[in-house]
């Protein structure tokens, strides 16, 4: 196993776009080549080593055999692990926006929190966040009709608004609460929310949204039966009927 460690040289006032921090980009390169990869800070082009301390094994290895460790605060660093197909990225603290977007495989594990647009338009692989995630987890970016299509996202804390908007496949599991409009325009993915949310599933046409806690349900959802899952009772709804949707919404019994 090859291991590369990246540490910011200082706190960034202007955010950094670092789509090159990905096992696929690092795999065929030696350490010195990795250091000269391009990143953008604002409108200035820099090399990776101008902003970060890069250490680790020198010899190129396959992406599957590569682990990238991010030490320190990466909350101002965007697009970490963009489009990665294999390997592991481990962040010890928080990461910035668009982490793991368009991800196809591998593991992105974040011990802190993730900012907005975590794993948007993800196709495969796994994203694990120990803290909280921002808005638009696993959703489609502006104007896009399809968000996440496959893979798995797990957030141990809470998530922001528009969780899994335009979801087309894959599964999202949030242990805590989700913000407003979770699963909006869901077209076939699966969402589980351990806590509560507000107005889930607006415009959903397919897929399943399960809310263990409380949820304000839109009037365009039709109440069907009560189902038991793992010994707990859930009220089942069909919708969203404004779009003639065939989606399933399950809300823990006890909420309105």
């Amino acid at each position: 196993m090859r291991s590369i460690t990246i540490t910011p040289q200082k706190a960034f006032c202007i955010s950094v776009e670092a789509e090159n921090i990905s096992p696929d980009k690092f795999a065929p390169l030696t350490l010195s080549q990795i250091k000269s990869l391009v990143v953008w800070q604002g409108n200035r082009q820099k090399t990776l080593s101008e902003l970060f301390v890069v250490e680790g094994d020198d010899a190129p290895a396959k992406a599957e055999e590569l682990t990238i460790r991010l030490i320190g605060d990466f909350s101002q660093v965007k697009r970490i692990g963009e489009g990665m197909t294999a390997g592991v990225v481990l962040a010890e603290e928080s990461v910035g926006m668009h982490a793991g977007n368009n991800m196809l495989g591998g593991l992105l594990s974040i011990s802190g929190s993730a900012d907005d647009w975590l794993a948007r338009e993800m196709r495969g692989g796994k994203v694990l966040v120990m803290g909280n995630a921002g808005n638009y987890v696993g959703s489609g970016y502006r104007g896009e009709k399809c968000g996440m299509r496959g893979g798995e996202i797990e957030v141990r804390g809470s998530a922001g608004a528009f969780l899994g908007e335009h979801l087309c496949g894959g599964s999202i599991r949030i242990a805590g609460d989700a913000g407003d409009f979770a699963g909006a325009a869901n077209q076939g993915g699966t969402i589980f929310i351990g806590g509560s949310t507000y107005l889930p599933g607006a415009e959903m046409s397919k897929g399943t949204i399960t809310v263990k806690g409380e949820a304000k349900v839109l009037p365009s959802f039709q109440k069907t039966e009560i189902v038991q899952i793992d010994g707990l009772a859930f009220q089942k709804y069909a919708g969203d009927l404004v779009d003639n949707g065939k989606g399933e919404l399950l809300v823990g019994v006890g909420s309105s």
Binding site: W40, N43, Y141
Partner: peptide, 14 residues
């Protein structure tokens, strides 16, 4: 305006 999804294809810096 309708297609921000299109705008992000083919971006080139100045």
């Amino acid at each position: 305006i309708m297609r921000p999804d299109d705008a992000r294809q083919g971006t080139e810096p100045r």
